[in-house]
Amino acid sequence: MPDTTAGSVAAQPAGSPAVPRVPAPRRRPAGTVYRGREGMWSWVLHRITGTAIYFFLLVHILDTALVRLSPSAYNAVIDTYKTPIMGLGETALVAAIVLHAFNGLRIILVDFWSFATRHQRALFWVVVALWVVTMAGFVPEQFAHVFGGAS
């Protein structure tokens, strides 16, 4: 079996035309856990949503802490959460939380249940389906509150 590791190639005399070359990497690596497809994208989305939720959490603890300062200070800040733009922001936040939550459950299943390990790709689409169903329930309620004129 020809040895094509980088180490053995480096040991060959440089410049020789007979040096076996390391085969060029395939342009689309496939067949590994985190290269492309559902496994990688769920991992990427878990990181992005987690980071976004974390920074909202920091702000949200600070704005809630204003209740200790004065009722008017808290109300002034929380009123900004009721504007249409922030209403869309809350929708995005809930979308991130719901995806992170369901994908987190998927990760636990993949860790502890061999069936889920084998079917992790299909489970990602189950996560997406549950996310769609949950958002279909949440978004109309949220938009009715934010854009429906109730105050």
Binding site: S72, Y81, E90, Q142, H145, A150
Partner: peptide, 20 residues
């Protein structure tokens, strides 16, 4: 999220008295 954003008037219901 359900109690603070969905139930009742949603985010519009939140103020100092709501938290209290």
């Amino acid at each position: 999220l359900f109690v603070n954003l969905v139930a009742g008037d949603g985010v519009h219901a939140i103020d100092f008295a709501f938290v209290a």
